[in-house]
């Protein structure tokens, strides 16, 4: 299994009291995998208003995927951009690594592609 950026784009620090600037969690990846999922244009267009694009762009850069820092104004009809976005959201994925809160520095472990978002884990 693996964690795709579409999932990471919804994860924020859950530590009690850490409510500000706790997103996006910074990725440090030891093992990445790239899938070959077929480009699904309609799906990506539907996701456009649901993702936090600037956060995604920063997170993608952390695992070596370049996205424009701002969403292009013509995103919905910009096929080259949509393909790039699909690749970033659905194909590049983290198998082993960590997620670190940019605010409180709490570290969440990703093992076997599964991020551990339990509130009281002390293992690092």
């Amino acid at each position: 299994n693996e964690m795709h950026l579409l999932t990471q784009n919804m994860l924020q620090c859950i530590k009690k009291g850490c409510n500000k600037d706790n997103f996006p969690l910074r990725i440090s990846a030891q093992e990445l995998r790239t899938d070959e999922r077929e480009y699904d244009r309609d799906f990506v267009i539907r996701m456009l208003p649901r993702i936090e694009y600037e956060a995604l762009s920063r997170s993608a850069a952390e695992i070596g995927v370049a996205l424009p820092p701002q969403m292009p104004a013509d995103a919905q009809s910009n096929d080259a951009f949509l393909q790039l976005l699909h690749h970033a959201l659905m194909n590049v994925a983290v198998v082993t690594g960590t997620l670190t809160c940019p605010n409180c520095a709490r570290v969440y472990i990703i093992k076997n592609g599964i991020p551990n978002m339990m509130p009281n884990e002390t293992e690092v």
Partner: peptide, 9 residues
């Protein structure tokens, strides 16, 4: 099949 799994309470 490809499912993103997350451990959480």
């Amino acid at each position: 099949v490809d499912i993103d799994l997350v451990r959480a309470d």
